[in-house]
Design a binder for these strands. Structure first.
Lengths: 121, 121
DNA sequence: CTGTATCCTACTTGATACTG
DNA sequence: CAGTATCAAGTAGGATACAG
């Protein structure tokens, strides 16, 4: 029985486990931006196209709970909260880069317009 | 506008595109088994724990349609169908290996039982 | 043996509103 | 400015039945 449970979810292999930590639609755009810069909440919100308030908020929360990013609250009115990447987050970035390069390669194989590929963030 | 549409779905980055091709719960267990061996349908069904008939069938279909595996039908009664990996599928395997190693590393960091990690397929 | 279709459930995400 | 809660919609996946 090689499968296991983490946070009430059943996993069959390490790939699933990894992609639940760093995958999904929004975690990668978030980590990608924090790679070499600290962002305030509102800056991330403005910088990531299409992300909703709810998703940014919830994804930041789990990324912090699972140790991929730091959250620093400044006691001020209005509130100021800054997010930065951790060592664990940086380790994820190097895996993301591999998947990203592979994704670009696949997009070319699948005939996605070269203009789009060149402009992809 | 760096985003694009493929098969009626909107993508924001290459990682999403890649993970829609080779991700999900079942594609990786399937590709992983075809890595260095041809399987009949029923052999895959028996070898992959928990997979349902419907999911094996549908995932094999899209993996074939998108060029990651070959499907060979033998004209016999009862039917015999063999699946094998393609060059494109092999390229995916090397990315899967990277994610897989990272996943194992994360599982250790997150305190998953070492016995489970050692026995993971 | 292999493949497809239908129905149903659970989960993820978006829209919106409310809070300190 | 940042975070949470509620509700609705869409999608992935399981159970089951039927077909060649």
């Amino acid at each position: 029985m090689p499968e296991f449970i983490y946070k009430k979810k059943l996993y069959y292999n390490p790939v699933e486990f990894a992609m639940d930590r760093i995958g999904g639609t929004w975690k990668i755009p978030i980590l990608w931006r924090l790679k070499n810069k600290t962002f305030r909440y509102g800056e991330l919100k403005n910088d990531i196209p299409h992300i909703t308030h709810k998703m940014l908020s919830s994804q930041l929360k789990v990324l912090e709970e699972e140790g991929f990013i730091n959250r620093v609250v400044y006691a001020a009115v209005p509130p100021k909260v800054e997010y930065s990447i951790t060592e664990r987050g940086l380790a994820a970035i190097s895996v993301i880069e591999v998947i990203r390069n592979y994704g670009i390669h696949l997009m070319q194989e699948f005939g996605i317009d070269e203009t789009i590929i060149r402009n992809i963030q």
